[in-house]
Simulated assay, not measured.
Amino acid sequence: MMPVNLNVSAMLERAELFFPHKEVVSRTKEGMHRFTYKEIGARTRRLSSALQRLGVGVGDRVGTLAYNHHRHLEAYFGIPGLGAVIHTINPRLAPEHIIYTINHAGDKVLLVDEELLPLVEKIQSRLPSVQAYVVMSDSSSVPPSSLQPLYAYEGLLMEGDPRFPFYKDLDEYAPAGLCYTFSAAGAPKGVLYSHRALVLHSFAVGLADTFGLSEADVCLPVVPMFHVNAWGLPYAATWFGAKQVLPGANFTPEVLAKLIEREKVTVTAGVPTIWMGLYPLLEKGDYDTSSLRAVVCGGSAAPPALIQRYEENLGIPFYHAYGLTETTPLVTVARLKSYQETLSGEEKLALKSKQGLLVP
């Protein structure tokens, strides 16, 4: 058997090869965008080549301050595809924490959503490692900003190579991603994800007794892409060729309901407050959610009443999951075993409200 390194870029290459016509639907402040995996692949390669021209090389850190959209998805693959490390930064953190994580990571380049530029402008003087800034928007020109040097993402892509070869045979234990976790005690702690870890985690997301994500699914990750890689869904969905729906910034329950109905979403994931906010809207029956086969909830414990309402009142399967930044993140999923299906409703709800079974 031939040994092959498990590399992140190979997951996108599979989507390019076998699912070139499947879609990535992306909501940004400029509107809705639709790309095929063939187009996403070409754009990602353009990004890798552009970052290389900016001096990014193997092992360098590239930070992202961005929401859930196609450009962030391209960064998920384009940065590791160059042998560099993507550092997803939570823009909701206090400025001091953002400064600390960027400096601790040693980010060389920052990719920043246009609406987040003011945040970075205020702290630029305290980011000695950052050598370039890239603004992510639909425009190919840069907006007025004190950030220097500042490049337009779309402008860089126009000059990039759509056939840029991703680096091959990177050590699968080499770092590909970086997230920071926080606690009440001490400074934020960085967690490095190897190529191997991200690929194996994607395997786990596709297991039938986990989320069972497959090519037939339409995946809507509501959990932010700056939060533990959106629980690994963008990586897995790309690898398996699932259609992806990325909701962007400042979404509302109405936006999510419309996306679920229009795009026929089958799998979605987010924290309990998302599903608490969405439930009253869905309860009115104004939106068709019949396509949904799984609502995945994590980040904190889901109230049993919430699980019950989705399953009994809306007929939508609701899965309680648990994970940690340090575990890539999925650890357990609460699914009933086959012999538990005959239990009473109260007994089944009690099981579904627990942490569940360890993911293989």
Rank of each mutant, 00 (worst) to 15 (best):
residue 143 P to Q: 07
residue 117 L to V: 14
residue 112 V to F: 06
residue 116 L to T: 05
residue 100 Y to P: 02
residue 133 Y to P: 02
residue 219 C to H: 11
residue 157 L to D: 00
residue 185 A to C: 06
residue 229 N to Q: 13
residue 119 L to S: 08
residue 174 A to T: 05
residue 137 S to F: 03
residue 169 D to W: 09
residue 151 Y to V: 00
residue 226 F to K: 08
residue 102 I to A: 00
residue 96 E to C: 09
residue 172 E to D: 15
residue 147 L to P: 00
residue 229 N to A: 15
residue 102 I to Y: 00
residue 157 L to Y: 03
residue 166 F to I: 05
residue 159 E to H: 11
residue 189 K to S: 03
residue 115 E to G: 01
residue 175 P to E: 04
residue 88 T to A: 15
residue 176 A to D: 07
residue 178 L to W: 07
residue 150 L to E: 05
residue 90 N to K: 09
residue 217 D to E: 13
residue 174 A to M: 09
residue 191 V to R: 00
residue 127 L to V: 12
residue 129 S to P: 01
residue 146 S to I: 07
residue 143 P to E: 04
residue 190 G to Y: 04
residue 161 D to I: 05
residue 151 Y to P: 01
residue 190 G to I: 06
residue 104 H to P: 00
residue 173 Y to M: 14
residue 215 E to K: 14
residue 91 P to V: 06
residue 178 L to E: 04
residue 187 A to L: 15
residue 128 P to I: 05
residue 101 T to M: 01
residue 91 P to G: 12
residue 142 V to H: 07
residue 115 E to D: 15
residue 98 I to G: 11
residue 107 D to V: 03
residue 156 L to I: 04
residue 207 L to R: 13
residue 218 V to P: 00
residue 202 S to I: 02
residue 227 H to C: 11
residue 88 T to E: 03
residue 225 M to C: 06
residue 169 D to P: 02
residue 206 G to D: 03
residue 203 F to N: 11
residue 112 V to Y: 05
residue 173 Y to Q: 14
residue 226 F to A: 08
residue 159 E to N: 10
residue 163 R to N: 15
residue 214 S to W: 05
residue 155 G to M: 04
